[in-house]
């Protein structure tokens, strides 16, 4: 299985991927992650590719072979589209990050509606208000945990829900365990509401 996780610097893309990989290893799978984080801390594109099981060969996956896209930012989701199989599952946090260049008028940030219509043309898109739910759970920092909750709820992963939740809780500071658990559960509920 090939999973793509993408966003901009500060979204926790690489940590999220490591959490998924640790959980997959606990379930006995081989894993490979490759990430690219250009100048992540400065609001640049960050993406990582997680390969699990029989796909865990080379670190870079071929185009059009992604099964799942976990996207923390709409434009970044669009950027990864060519790596996805048709009808791949896309979980999208619909909170845009515009960036300096678009503010300067050096580039255009596309309309959100247009991004969503492009994505849903060939992919199974589920929008999650992850940033808002994370704030509700205690902090926007936990946006990635909300997204992981939604992913667990989607039943797309070959990883048990509790294995994934425990991998999250193993990686976060001890004093934030309760709020992270809450964020994960908000993500699960949000997915179920969306899918219903």
């Amino acid at each position: 299985m090939n999973i793509i996780i993408c966003g901009v610097g500060g979204n926790g893309v690489i940590l999220t991927t490591r959490i998924l990989a640790e959980a997959a290893m606990k379930e006995g799978f081989n894993v490979r992650i490759v990430y690219s984080h250009g100048l992540a801390i400065r609001g640049g594109t960050v993406v990582s590719y997680l390969r699990i099981g029989s796909d865990a060969k080379g670190v870079i996956m071929p185009q059009r072979s992604g099964d799942i896209l976990l996207a923390f930012e709409p434009l970044e989701a669009l950027r990864q589209m060519k790596l996805l199989k048709d009808n791949a599952k896309v979980l999208l946090n619909n909170e845009p990050y515009i960036g300096v260049d678009a503010h300067l008028g050096l580039s255009d940030y596309p309309e959100i509606d247009e991004i969503i219509s492009k994505l849903s043309k060939t992919q199974e898109l589920v929008e999650i208000e992850a940033s808002k739910l994370a704030i509700k759970a205690g902090s926007q920092v936990m946006t990635n945990v909300v997204m992981l909750g939604s992913l667990a709820s989607s039943k797309e992963l070959p990883i048990k829900r509790d294995t994934l939740l425990n991998a999250v809780l193993d990686m976060v500071p001890p004093q934030t365990i309760e709020s992270n658990k809450r964020a994960f559960e908000y993500g699960e509920q949000a997915f179920q509401e969306r899918a219903a």
Partner: peptide, 10 residues
Amino acid sequence: MLTKRVPALC
């Protein structure tokens, strides 16, 4: 539609 994100100083 893909515009590149130009890096900036922090």
